[in-house]
Simulated scan of single mutants.
Amino acid sequence: MIPANLSEVSEFKLLGFSEVSHLHLLIFVVLFPLYILTLVANTMIALIIHGDKTLHTSMYFFLTQLSCLDICYLSVIVPKILENLIVGTIGVSKIGCAMQMFFFLFFGVAECFLLAAMSFDRYVAICFPLHYTVIMNSRVCISLVAGTYLCGTVVGLVHTTITFSLPFCGLAINHFFCEIQPLLELLCGNSAPTEIQVIAVAVFAIVCPFLTIIYSYICIISTILKMSSTESQQKAFSTCSSHLLVVTLFYGTASSMYLRPKSSYSATVDKLLSLSYTVVTPLLNPVIYTLRNEEVKRALRKRWRNINILLK
């Protein structure tokens, strides 16, 4: 029997992929190499940008921050998933669960606002090219990044503090990490106020930066269409297309998770959505930026040549 009120609970159970236990080994075999590949790809992007002085611009400064966020974001979630796949249902302390939720929200929300900062950078570069280096100086770039981390901290603290100050009437989290929606399922009594709070914070963390991105790209597209040279238009579109792909991937899955009521929650569907934005998106980010960015590819080829010379 489970006590009616588990507000003093010290440990939760992460059920993970218990409904497909026969596929645990297959999921592990697929997920573990993807995790390592994502860590290597994002680390490589950060090191290439850091080591090439021609890439020391605001655009690549933000890209380095994105790679670092993806590494941290992924590492908060995936190790627990891998442990769950090997061991089965695992326990996680209440403090450990709260910390996982906080850091998941911290890095996730910071990435939302960082993508907005990157869109602002592209807006200034295309709409005010003559003033770009003056407007997007190092102080402004550092302030924007600091702002993204501040927003992540505030959202993470608000969600985590409110959620874990409420009484729980369940121990088993039907997910592979301490996600908000499955934890709401375990709250005692009427969880509607908490659900409203989740959606309100999600509006701030997802919709506000997304509207900033939309406005930036309306201005960008308007400026591009006014360009007389077709070559200039293609170059401008090429510069923005990578960022737009990343935004679509990240915001598409995040909004489908958090901008809807608990009544529409489906554990199986939400696990798949969570996998897409915790594993797939961080892997695709460096691929998109590498394959679609000539400067990054050129720096990568240069680094590869240097390595070959050293090995000979």
Score class of each variant (00 low, 15 high):
4 A>S: 15
4 A>F: 05
5 N>E: 08
6 L>R: 11
17 F>N: 10
18 S>H: 14
23 L>W: 15
26 L>H: 12
30 V>N: 06
32 F>G: 04
33 P>D: 08
37 L>S: 05
39 L>V: 09
40 V>A: 10
41 A>C: 14
42 N>H: 09
46 A>G: 03
48 I>T: 08
49 I>P: 00
54 T>Q: 05
59 M>T: 02
62 F>W: 01
64 T>K: 12
65 Q>P: 04
65 Q>L: 01
69 L>S: 05
74 L>K: 08
79 P>F: 13
79 P>L: 13
88 G>N: 03
90 I>M: 07
90 I>F: 02
91 G>Q: 09
91 G>T: 08
93 S>M: 10
96 G>L: 13
97 C>N: 11
98 A>L: 11
100 Q>M: 15
100 Q>F: 11
103 F>D: 03
107 F>G: 11
108 G>W: 10
108 G>V: 07
115 L>V: 05
119 S>P: 02
119 S>W: 00
120 F>V: 07
122 R>D: 04
125 A>K: 03
128 F>A: 10
131 H>K: 14
138 S>F: 12
139 R>E: 13
140 V>P: 14
141 C>R: 10
144 L>S: 07
145 V>Q: 13
153 T>L: 14
154 V>L: 10
154 V>M: 03
166 L>K: 14
180 I>Y: 12
182 P>N: 06
186 L>S: 04
186 L>C: 06
186 L>G: 05
187 L>W: 15
188 C>H: 06
189 G>L: 11
195 E>K: 04
199 I>M: 09
202 A>T: 05
203 V>T: 15
206 I>V: 14
214 I>P: 00
214 I>E: 01
218 I>A: 09
219 C>H: 02
219 C>D: 00
222 S>G: 03
225 L>N: 15
227 M>E: 02
228 S>T: 10
229 S>Y: 11
230 T>F: 00
231 E>K: 00
231 E>M: 01
236 A>R: 06
238 S>E: 09
239 T>C: 10
240 C>T: 01
251 Y>I: 04
255 S>R: 07
264 S>F: 12
273 L>Q: 07
274 S>E: 13
274 S>Q: 15
276 S>Y: 04
279 V>R: 02
281 T>P: 05
282 P>D: 05
290 T>A: 03
290 T>S: 06
290 T>R: 00
290 T>D: 00
296 V>P: 03
297 K>P: 00
300 L>E: 11
300 L>S: 04
301 R>W: 12
302 K>M: 01
303 R>Y: 13
305 R>P: 14
305 R>Q: 13
310 L>R: 06
